[in-house]
Structures are given as C-alpha cells and as structure tokens.
C-alpha cells in the first residue's frame, strides 16, 4: 500500500486503530498532525508531557499547532501544572472517567480528529485489557456521534493481541503499519 492510500484509509474512515512499529513511532507522531494541519485536532497524550509534545510539534513548521488542543494525562501526575489555553491537564492516565468527560467536552468545539497516543500506555496503567476496551468503546461512540474522526495509536502488537482483536469489533478500520513497510523520508 502506498503512503497516499494509507493516509486515505487513515483519514477517511471514522475510527482507526493504528498499529505502529516501535521504530516508526517518533516519525508517525509528527507525520499525522502534519498531514492534518488544516484540521482541528484534539490530541490526547498519555506518554509525553504537554511541553515535550509541543517541543516535538514545534520542530515541524508544517504542523499547525494553532489547530491542536491537547489533553495531557502525564504532567499533573508528576509535578506542578501551569494552566495553558490549549491544554487540559487530567489527573493521571488511570483517570479514564475524567478523560472520557473531558473528551466529550472538547468534542463540543467542532473537533475534526481525536488522536489518542497511545492505547499501549493506557494498558501499562490499567494492567488489564477490559477497562481499556470499555473506555475505547465509549470514546468511539462519542467521536462518531459528534461527527469527528478518531485515530488510536497502539505499539508493540504481540503484547496487545486481545486489545487488537476486541478493537477490531469496535473500530471501522485497523491499519497495521508493520505490514505496510512505508518509506517515511
């Protein structure tokens, strides 16, 4: 599959589980917002702080950070938080109810895409797949109802077989970049 058709599948389907090889992860987290620079994005970060994510985005001038609002589940769990206009800080990645409520609120503001980075991190905190799948099902429903689209990152697939199987029943699209062998440069 070509890079263009991958992005077509990724951006046109309402919800996609994007399985990312770990070696491509850093490339992907900047490539996708770059491709969506004219869209309003709600980016949920579960493994990078707001400041670290902004630094990453700012390294790529093509990424329109003015169109991105962030839900940061990390910073508040490790230290003090300064309020930001473009970010909501939730208590921790374990706070799935809080996260779900905040996503609902953000979806009221004409968001085009919700990006969740990543389900892999959610599993570290939750230990079991069941709460993550329940959360995922809930979020997918909210995203579809709002008319937005959702992209859910997951890495290291051999550890997440059940999650991927269950997700395939929830998501409209499963895209495994491990099988696509894309040249990113």
């Amino acid at each position: 599959m070509t890079k263009i058709s991958i992005f077509y599948n990724l951006f046109e389907k309402p919800t996609t589980l994007l399985i990312i090889p770990s070696q491509d992860y850093n490339q992907i987290i900047s490539e996708i917002p770059r491709q969506l620079s004219n869209k309003k994005i709600c980016y949920i970060t579960l493994n990078k702080t707001y400041n670290a994510l902004k630094e990453t985005f700012n390294e790529h001038p093509e990424i329109n950070t003015e169109n991105i609002v962030i839900i940061d589940a990390i910073t508040k769990s490790i230290g003090k938080v300064e309020n930001k206009e473009d970010c909501y800080f939730i208590t921790s990645p374990q706070a799935l109810t809080e996260l779900s409520i905040v996503i609902s609120e953000f979806l009221n503001y004409e968001i085009d895409y919700v990006i969740l980075d990543s389900l892999t991190t959610l599993l570290i905190y939750q230990k079991a797949e069941e709460p993550v799948i329940k959360f995922l099902s809930n979020i997918v429903h909210k995203i579809k109802t709002s008319g937005a689209k959702g992209i859910f990152y997951v890495i290291n697939i051999k550890d997440h077989k059940l999650l991927i199987e269950e997700s395939s029943m929830i998501m409209d699209n499963i895209l495994n970049l491990e099988e696509e062998k894309i040249e990113w440069s």
Binding site: T49, N51, A52, L53, E55, I74, I78, G79
Partner: peptide, 11 residues
Amino acid sequence: VKISQSDKENM
C-alpha cells in the same frame, strides 16, 4: 515518559 527540560527542572 518523554518530558521536556523545563518539566525536569520543575520536577
């Protein structure tokens, strides 16, 4: 977790 230099200083 990926954190920035300012986060480190804060922590």
